[in-house]
Simulated assay, not measured.
Amino acid sequence: MTSPTSAEPMSTLRRRTSAKWRTYPEDVLPMFVAEMDYPLAPAIAAALHEAVDLGDTGYIVDRDERAARAFSEFAAARWGWTPDVRRMRTTTDVSVVIAEALRRLVRPGGGVIITPPVYPPFYDLIPEAGGSVVEVPLRDDGTAFSLDIDGIDRALEAGASGVLLCSPHNPVGLVHDRETLERLAAVVARHDGFVLADEIHAPLTHDGVAFTPYLSVSDEARSHGISAESGSKAFNLAGLKTAFFVTESDGMADLVRGLPDEVTYRTGQFGLIATREGFANGRDWLDGTIASLQANLDLLERELAEQLPAVRLRRPSAGFLAWLDMSALGWGDDPAVVARREARVALMSGPAFGRPGIGHARMNIACAPETITEAVRRLAAVRR
């Protein structure tokens, strides 16, 4: 049985200097940005310590494929998909994969479909790359979320160039099933479009749920797709700056190879080392982390039911982000403002994820169970 990963004590966490721990005063519980409170996987920590001891802090080697090979082997073991290392390329992070790929995929002003509520930087990355945002919100039947394939079809018919897919979906934790992705691929192929799939949360798919990589679903998907992959969320490496462009067709591989050399050379040396070790030797730690996240979700469900039954949580199937419907509390369009001001709990603003996020907030549950208990207690104590 996998041993759960334990969060660092608060006294240690408060010594960190990352955004999670320096954005707000110490009386605020930081549960907003997607950083985890767990220690690094031992294999990653050992490899980074060795690099520091060696002074191995120079430039990356362009053709060093060890990190890419580790990811490919991880994907084969976890998802039955073995991406071709020769068709992969590294850069700093998934946002750069998205922006640089879109620069080549979208004509000036061309529409790119996103599916709100969705990761807020998508709204900025598309115009940065010269495109325009086209919103096709997730379908919500009151019980579950899903992609609106018919809506995407209509948007492509109206002139959109392609789809920026969040898979698994941030913030709702939706893991798209294979049938849905096959339908998406067929629709996009019919319109001669593209799919750029952000799969950064995929390694954190929960037990009993099957993650399907977009590039594995069909020849059509492989022909028109690029995937953005990284260990930054799975192993808490966001500050070390490494992500992958992954392609599975000659056309998309040529597009990625045509990017400026500096796109690759900006990759972090420590990021490459940590990514390689995480995917190759951090799998037991990852399993323990997923076990802790699932236990924390169980706890959050219980605490909300007992103390804040008006707040609705639909359990995510991947990742460490809980999407909270707080609209029944009467805290306005952006309940994170009230949560931070009145309860001293920092949540991520729901409206930042698009109009469907009105009345919602996102909570990071990659923390100690006591932090979740205290956060709900504080929120429940607010009287409006």
Score class of each variant (00 low, 15 high):
5 T>I: 15
9 P>H: 04
11 S>R: 12
18 S>A: 02
22 R>H: 07
23 T>K: 15
24 Y>F: 03
26 E>F: 01
29 L>I: 11
40 L>E: 04
47 A>W: 03
50 E>D: 05
58 G>N: 05
60 I>P: 06
62 D>P: 06
75 A>M: 14
84 D>Q: 15
93 D>Y: 14
96 V>H: 13
96 V>S: 15
103 R>N: 02
104 R>S: 05
108 P>M: 03
109 G>Q: 02
113 I>K: 06
124 D>R: 13
126 I>V: 11
129 A>H: 08
137 P>F: 03
138 L>R: 08
145 F>C: 12
149 I>Q: 04
156 L>M: 14
157 E>Q: 04
158 A>K: 05
158 A>T: 09
161 S>F: 11
167 S>K: 10
172 V>W: 12
177 D>N: 15
178 R>K: 10
181 L>F: 13
184 L>T: 09
185 A>I: 05
188 V>P: 01
195 V>Q: 10
195 V>H: 10
214 Y>V: 06
219 D>E: 15
220 E>Y: 14
223 S>T: 08
232 S>P: 04
234 A>E: 07
237 L>F: 03
239 G>E: 11
248 E>A: 15
248 E>L: 12
250 D>M: 13
261 D>L: 08
267 T>V: 01
272 L>S: 08
278 G>C: 04
281 N>P: 00
282 G>W: 03
282 G>C: 11
284 D>E: 12
291 A>M: 12
293 L>H: 09
299 L>N: 13
301 E>C: 09
302 R>D: 13
307 Q>V: 04
308 L>K: 02
309 P>G: 10
311 V>L: 01
311 V>H: 03
312 R>E: 10
332 G>K: 03
333 D>Y: 03
337 V>Y: 12
342 E>R: 14
344 R>G: 00
345 V>Q: 01
349 S>M: 08
355 R>C: 02
358 I>Y: 00
359 G>A: 12
364 N>H: 13
365 I>S: 03
367 C>G: 13
371 T>S: 09
374 E>T: 13
